[in-house]
Design a protein around this nucleic acid. Structure first.
Lengths: 342, 342
DNA sequence: CTTTGTTAGGAAACCGCTATACCATTATAT
DNA sequence: ATATAATGGTATAGCGGTTTCCTAACAAAG
């Protein structure tokens, strides 16, 4: 059996209360008694039972992290893990505990979430990814649970969230292109208009415009959001005929970039000599392709960490309402664009 | 405040004990009383406080998962997340809870692990990755903690572990090559001999031999375990001169494969027409390269799940001693080798 | 020398739930 | 009819801590 506070008390020849006081508040304790208790605790290798503590104190310092693991989703979304690590690190640092709840097999993640919160008397809820839907939102708001959602939920503006600003990332792309002296740029984006990919396009367009580089209609390639879709689109747009070849391509995400690389290979175009290439998000692949791709990335670990510390601030100050694009994009220079001459 | 068992008891007009019985054992309870209790519980939306329950029952059903997150390591090791998901899923399925402990900032992970186990009165310990070292091993054995290590620890054979058999994966590679009719194969491996990479080489060699395809010394390229190292090695080995070009290359891991792809590109060799390529582990990149690489992979999610269920079996049967290569390699056919004609 | 204040430490209630012991009933066996 | 057993339910003692309240003991003040 493990050693309890009573064992320590007996060993030190004092009462439980005294041990507890020494180990916590230090109110009205003589140095000698403290010594005795500390010695006994040390000797017995006493570790307080955290369940008993949180039970007695009626606080849990526990946060439920709700996400949709899928079945081994790192391949499809390597960000999930990094974000989770960031959250976990920050929570742990402040003495909180994190309980993972996977919603991938839940029909009603909201119900499940509330249930977990209540069951564990958790202090709050951090949600990431596809776990968030209308049902969940309704539950959260109804039960008034302190929460932070990682990723901007579009369907309810009473929710608290943080996210990265994909539009801003798009602007960064425009700036980098302009800096590098690429005036005529093709943007490859997915067809659906409600995607991250298109927020990037929006930002790119806006910034290009303000830089007096209007992006004409024929310099945006809308494609199936697959590698082969992008490949085909690029082959068509840069094929034999018509338009002069752009100086550079911006791909709205890594998958499209992979397809674009394939297409450029087939066209016999060398990157960045014949044509430059910029994309978003560091996937393991972007550093392993030849050439290594230049990307506009975000520090997702940091985003998770921010969500964690935001949660803690919210618990200290329940009225705190958070909706912000906290995480800034960063440029990671690779070999696929020529960096601007200093 | 949240609703307690006393509230339910009051509402149903019975004692706490009765409520507890109805909600758990159902021993000696009349149908009418059960109804009353169930109704009250339903009406009040009662959810038992899990901390109180596990405290009273003196069981935790909690497993500590010890790993080294690093700072956002999915990029360097996308397997970590999948393994963790597998473990989590399996534990959750059996009503266990998983507590994440990150050792990346610990000097003595062993001490930390034991502390966490004791603090949370956890039932067992699952360890993955670089978190495991001699100090940790010593602690585990000393304290006799039920444990499963994911990954074969070489320094102590009293530990319980499961792993995938990299040697076997190497054999699979040999078989696939032989099946495809590639007789003359170059193996690109890292220089250090104690690595996974070299277990794969070992298995490859052994199987090739048994297939009567001796791998001569000059058909193994030992390289720096980096992309550029592999690139250089391959350039040298396939460069202008001397030896006839092999029909195929096996790379001991994805990083080496990326370097090899780069080298082949520079040499103007087309894959798989001029030369075939096979590697290990599905990284996001292997599917995004051109051509999509054929790989020998393992289902790491499944490996995690096995670790989880093994843990549970161990708790039911403390004498269970586990050391086994549970997870089988699988071939994922890509475009970089020509599949064997049926 | 009493009164008051301060300090060190202990007794006991409590957190929410489980589980055992126990007490009425009522049914069954002798 | 009495002994015995089963049934349905309650009272209560923990689980391992924290915390409030209380009591000595001693010091300072009047």
């Amino acid at each position: 059996m493990s050693v309890t506070i009573t064992d320590v008390a007996d060993a030190a020849g004092v009462s439980k209360s005294t041990v507890s006081k020494v180990l916590n508040h230090w109110t009205s304790i003589s140095p000698e008694t403290a010594r005795k208790v500390l010695d006994a605790a040390e000797r017995l290798n006493y570790i307080p039972n955290s369940r008993a503590v949180s039970f007695a104190r009626q606080v849990t310092k526990n946060i439920v992290y709700l996400t949709d693991f899928g079945q081994g989703t790192a391949y499809s979304n390597p960000h999930m893990f990094d974000i989770m690590c960031g959250v976990h690190h920050e929570l742990t640092r402040s003495g909180y505990t994190m309980t993972l709840v996977d919603t991938s097999e839940e029909t009603f993640p909201g119900e499940r979430a509330i249930q977990e919160i209540r069951r564990r008397s958790a202090d709050g809820l951090i949600i990431h990814g596809s776990a968030v839907n209308e049902e969940l939102a309704a539950m959260i708001l109804k039960e008034n649970v302190p929460h932070i959602i990682i990723g901007h939920p579009s369907f309810d503006n009473r929710l608290c969230w943080i996210d990265t600003d994909h539009t801003l990332a798009g602007e960064y792309a425009a700036v980098h292109m302009a800096d590098c002296g690429y005036l005529d740029v093709l943007f490859v984006a997915g067809k659906r208009s409600d995607t991250i990919s298109n927020q990037r396009l929006k930002g790119f367009r806006k910034k290009m415009l303000s830089l007096k580089r209007y992006v004409p209609h024929h310099r945006v390639g809308y494609t199936d959001a697959t590698r082969l879709g992008a490949c085909e689109t690029v082959l068509t747009l840069l094929g034999e005929d018509a338009l002069p070849r752009p100086q550079a391509i911006v791909c709205a995400n890594s998958v499209l970039a992979a397809g674009t690389v394939k297409a450029l290979g087939e066209l016999g175009l060398s990157v960045p000599k014949d044509i430059a290439l910029l994309t978003f998000d560091t996937y393991p692949c972007t550093g392993m392709l030849d050439p290594v791709l230049t990307v506009i990335d975000i520090n997702v670990y940091d985003m998770g960490a921010q969500a964690g510390s935001m949660m803690i601030r919210k618990l200290e100050n329940p009225d705190l309402f958070v909706q912000s694009f906290t995480t800034l994009p960063i440029l990671i220079q690779g070999e696929s664009t020529v960096p601007p001459a200093q």
